[in-house]
Amino acid sequence: MLDVQNLTFSYAPEQTPWTFSFQLEPGECIAIQGPSGSGKSTLMNLLAGFLTPRSGDLLWKGRSLLKTKPWERPITSVFQENNLFEHLNVLRNIGLGIHPGMKLSVAQQQAVENGLREVGLGGLGRRMPSELSGGQRQRVALLRALLRDQPLLLLDEPLTGLDAETRALLRSMLLQHKSRGTAIVLASHDEEDRQRLADTVWNL
């Protein structure tokens, strides 16, 4: 489904470019690991369309995504930090992920409420991000990503800094989506996350 063909990128001409090549099928998860600066975020940004590759191609269901704008790609990202709009409360942060103009159906609003309860944030919908702990913010970001229900998830250290119980909960939610066919690219330092979620581990 996702076919990354010799995608190369470098920030400066004199720099040795990164080259990425791999395939990903629905329901498959690839974990990438490596020290910081090894190109994990660069890959995520290339896939999401925030960076333009120097060469190579990126195919989705056989079609090139290179000319496709970030908002037209079938992709949702969860960054390491700064996922939330600081001036909007939790409900709005999630709602905007579902409809960019906050026009939610009653069912969608219900789904948001349910999701919040599921990740242990029931009743916190009207909090501002600054009133949440780091782990709570990360849960909001992940919940938004899951509710968007796009076929490809790009997760950059999504579970870092959470307590064991929450990690287990979120992992099971991710597995659930995976089993329904969502493909995942996961960058994680955590051995356990990689073992439980990934089908392939790729060292950069």
């Binding site: 999401a48 925030f50 908002w71 700064n82 996922n83």
Partner: peptide, 14 residues
């Protein structure tokens, strides 16, 4: 900031 713009772009908040 750049991060906010990335999120906004991906979420199609344009």
């Amino acid at each position: 900031d750049g991060d906010t713009l990335k999120v906004a772009d991906q979420l199609n908040i344009r």
